[in-house]
């Protein structure tokens, strides 16, 4: 883990960003005189699917691109790169996030779970198995995001976290069809497999 990362404060980052701006021509000149690849990189270490991974990354690299392009874990998909579609959903420290909306260097020390970490073709996670049984996909491109999202979403229900459609906040939340559909609505499936996805999730939620 990098101490440098931990010592960066928001104020410090802003100041240094301004400094970078003011000396930009100088940096460009130096980069041009170096190798064509002369990018500024920062070290970051996090855990991906139980394995510690150390990377040196261009600080502009999103967690999504770190996974797909640097770790070659291409199960996590890029659909919009703007946090609008959910295809890039991964689980970080137990919470689902759009990995396109955070920079990889923000995740020093974090535990990241991707679709590859949930199961493999020979050893599928129950939700992966349920998606196959219920045909909860078509083109398959949103599928890893749907499955990662669903795994974390069921955890949210188990922890009693309410949603927009929760009727009674004084009672335990349960994985009703409407609760699941509401909570999964950040994961778009243009093929329209929603009904089958809901059936697959219901299967696993009911145990």
């Amino acid at each position: 883990m990098s101490d440098w990362n931990l010592s960066v404060t928001r104020r410090g980052l802003l100041t240094s960003s301004a400094a970078v701006l003011s000396i930009a021509p100088a940096i460009r000149a130096r980069a041009a005189s170096q190798s064509s690849a002369g990018a500024t990189t920062l070290p970051v270490t996090f855990e991906v699917n139980g394995q510690e991974r150390m990377l040196r990354l261009d600080p502009r690299t999103t967690l999504l691109d770190a996974l797909r392009e640097h770790l070659k874990l291409t199960g996590t998909k890029k659909g919009c790169d703007h946090g609008q579609c959910g295809a890039c959903t991964v689980i970080v420290n137990g919470e689902r996030i759009n990995s396109c909306l955070s920079l990889a260097v923000q995740h020093a020390g974090d535990q990241v779970t991707t679709i590859e970490g949930l199961g493999t073709p020979d050893d599928l996670h129950p939700l992966q198995e349920a998606f196959i049984e219920h045909d909860g996909y078509q083109c398959g491109y949103c599928t890893p995001g749907q499955i990662c999202s669903a795994v974390a979403m069921l955890g949210e229900i188990e922890r009693g976290i309410p949603s927009h459609v929760t009727g009674d906040l004084s009672k335990a939340v349960s994985a009703t069809n409407m609760e699941v559909r509401e909570r999964m609505s950040g994961n778009i499936c243009r093929c329209g497999a929603y009904s089958n996805i809901a059936a697959a999730i219901a299967d696993v939620a009911e145990g």
Binding site: L73, T74, G75, T76, T114, I115, E116, L118, G119, T120, P121, D122, L124, Q128, E129, F131, I132, Y137, G140, T143, P144, I147
Partner: peptide, 10 residues
């Protein structure tokens, strides 16, 4: 192709 698609291997 289901096992490949659901595990991100496709």
């Amino acid at each position: 192709d289901g096992p490949l698609k659901t595990s991100g291997m496709a």
